[in-house]
Simulated scan of single mutants.
Amino acid sequence: MAKRNRSFAVVGLGAFGSTVATELARFGNRVIGIDIDERRVSLLTSTLSSALIMDATDEAALREAGIDKYDVALVAIGSNLEASILTAMTLKLIGIETIWVKASSRTHHRILAKLGVDRVIQPEQEMGRHIAQMLNNPVLQDYVSLGNGYSVVNIVVPKRLEGRELSTLGLGTVHDLRLLGVMRGTEFRHSTEDTLLETDDKLILLGKRGELRSFGDSL
């Protein structure tokens, strides 16, 4: 069955919001961008399905623009905490099914959580943690946090392990980690214990952060 593209409303077209909106459009989704700044809106008119200069706290204006028919809304308003909160409330009021909101502070985060939005994001903190993980351990190429302490990571096989069997790494025994597969170049491989490692193979591992960190350090 073909994947159904969804519709997205992105409110706030600063650096973060415009990037998300542009990428969603690139994936083939219907995306409307909203901002009160005419310059920001004009920059995206040829990229998004539509872009509007609008006060997103205005319920009537949102309904008139058909925003209530969109599947998902992202509120990416920067430092104006009041506008961000009022926009989230208005989007809930008009019946948007899924609402994500960018938070600029802990207080902002707590208020949004009380409002019952689906997800509160703090991109600067999340990216900061992401970069710190990779700087801390050079073999760690990338990771995705899954919550409850679990992450999926890509760990690069160093040259000194070339030719060794996968079983010698102690995955599932010494280290409480699950191997999801191995990337060799651009090819994904389902590997077995007797698979011979090559330099620059990427191990895709699932586990708790402490175990992943310990394994990375052992390499």
Rank of each mutant, 00 (worst) to 15 (best):
E162L: 04
L177M: 13
L169K: 03
S151G: 00
R189E: 11
G149N: 07
T173M: 13
L146H: 03
Q141A: 13
L161Q: 03
M134F: 09
S145E: 07
G147L: 08
D194W: 01
G170Q: 11
G149S: 07
L146R: 03
V182D: 03
E165R: 10
H175I: 14
T192M: 02
Y143W: 10
S145V: 05
N154R: 06
G163H: 08
N148F: 08
L169F: 09
L169R: 03
N148L: 06
G172L: 15
E162M: 06
D142W: 07
T186P: 00
V174F: 12
L179W: 04
R184V: 09
H175S: 14
V174C: 10
E193S: 11
T186K: 14
S151L: 03
V139D: 13
G181T: 07
V156M: 07
N136I: 06
N137D: 07
S145L: 04
G147Y: 10
N137S: 05
D142H: 09
V152F: 00
S191L: 03
L169G: 08
T192D: 02
P138I: 15
Q141C: 10
M134G: 00
G147T: 05
G147V: 08
I155Y: 02
R184W: 10
D194M: 02
L140D: 01
L171S: 12
P138E: 15
H175Y: 15
L171N: 09
N148Y: 07
L180E: 08
V156F: 01
L146D: 00
T192I: 03
L135Q: 06
P138Q: 13
E162F: 06
L169A: 09
T192K: 03
R164S: 02
S151K: 05
I155R: 01
